[in-house]
Amino acid sequence: MSALLDLIPSLLGGLWVTVQLTLGGALLACILAWLGGLGKRSGFWPVRWVAIAYIEVFRGTSALVQLFWFFYGLPLFGIHLAPMWAGILVLGLNIGAYGAEIVRGGIQSIDKGQSEACTALNLTPFQQFRFVLLPQALVRILPPAGNLLIELLKTTALVSLITLSDLTFKGMILRAETLRTAEIFALLLLIYFGLAQLLAFLVRRIELRLKRGWHMEGTS
């Protein structure tokens, strides 16, 4: 056990990079998921078209290839991104595209009677979204969004391929130095698993908070 523990300090720097990527990527993914999800429902076709193009392109290609493009491809066109920014950008764009479908599905799943009631009460489209659709969509969106967040955490390991020293990268370095392969990989597994559990716990907390006192038919 102590043999495992003495490896941890060398991994901490990498852990911080992984956390930064996860938080930064999640923030961007969250914004893009709403823009993409709402955009796909827009009545204005250019907006809808851009949203669909974004979702399809970033869902339909691999995150690794996207990462290579942003880090090694864009410089060919004169655009240079720091590895951390390239990492956050790709993670956000990639996960955001999946998130957009979750957002769209979450809003679409709300019974049509809800918007009819809003019309009958003369709510503006914005009020309808803010007071009726959004609160109901959020509780439906959160559980799959939590899954996606864990997916994002695991995808961060790819950034070691664009020179970022994240948790996985540090682990590989440490393995080369110490040759304690089994212990290091076991430790990596544990740390990623711990982070994922932490994320799942946080999402669950938010979900319970949103639903406090509210027992919705069909969910709960």
Binding site: A120, L121, N122, V132, Q136
Partner: peptide
Amino acid sequence: MRTQVGMVFQHFNLFPH
């Protein structure tokens, strides 16, 4: 015009939240 009219629905359509 909608300010003049109101409606009660067969399936209530209450806001569950």
